[in-house]
Design a protein around this nucleic acid. Sequence first.
DNA 1: TGCATATAGTTAGTTAAACAACTAACTAAA
DNA 2: TTTAGTTAGTTGTTTAACTAACTATATGCA
Lengths: 146, 146
Amino acid sequence: MQNNQFKKGELYSFITGKASTAIARNLQKKFNSAGLKVTIEQWSVLYHLWKQDGMSQQELCKATFRDKPSITRLVDNLEKLQLVKRVPSGNDRRINLVYLTRQAQRLQEEAMNLAEATLNEALEGVPPDRIDVCKEVLQIVYDNLK
Amino acid sequence: MQNNQFKKGELYSFITGKASTAIARNLQKKFNSAGLKVTIEQWSVLYHLWKQDGMSQQELCKATFRDKPSITRLVDNLEKLQLVKRVPSGNDRRINLVYLTRQAQRLQEEAMNLAEATLNEALEGVPPDRIDVCKEVLQIVYDNLK
DNA sequence: TGCATATAGTTAGTTAAACAACTAACTAAA
DNA sequence: TTTAGTTAGTTGTTTAACTAACTATATGCA
């Protein structure tokens, strides 16, 4: 145990993740301003479908670190927005494959550009090597607790 | 603009803050196992009251990075749990000062120890200087977007 | 074949976040 | 002192997270 790494007064911001909250909020505002009617959570699902269309809900769970009910709801809402479509798998009738609609495909570039812009704003003035350290630490944290 | 710091494929985990989610989830489980009947969000309010009792709701907003309705509801629930009490300010009748009950004071040590344990687990194997870099980067991110 | 077990997804219930619209109380300037 | 603007807090609505309990389908093994 590395007991003195954190003094009690410093626990808070690490645990509550205010930085990532701020990033998410900033991106949501950009979406709203641009008239993109998606939430960050919905975006996080679309993001993975843009990388690989036709994932199952289970795969989306793993990719987005969400549980099954969350994905059910998110896909419900994305279907209502006509951005994705559930298609039953031919091989295994338990499985829903989730496919992007034309409409969602058209959103990709704009949404990704806004996400990139948010990150560039967030990381303004941070040297690349420090970003790398930060990414590594956060990855270790995630792996340690998984 | 530092345009090539992030490749598009790397946006995701930074924006969605999976590390802080994992930390929060881990701490919540520790609370549950220990029979502490508080949520992480409630803990985040208690945390600041343990540092300084009798803060106003507005001050709690700033400290926890939440908006006013969120604090209203968290304090509502903490009151139901008999962990805090609203006391109208003498000087300004708009203001509620939020005070810890005896019961909440008794929770402090146990809750803080669990939070510390979570962080030690999370940061196992991460050298202290890298943690410092990480904290600095996250602080800059937060300030950049504020 | 048949049954236990695992997997994919849904539904229900509680808690919380974000936003907008609101009331009440205070402050400062005409 | 009246009015305009600000600040503190509450309420309503939508979206989402997490847990538990559920249905339906598939798989593995006796």
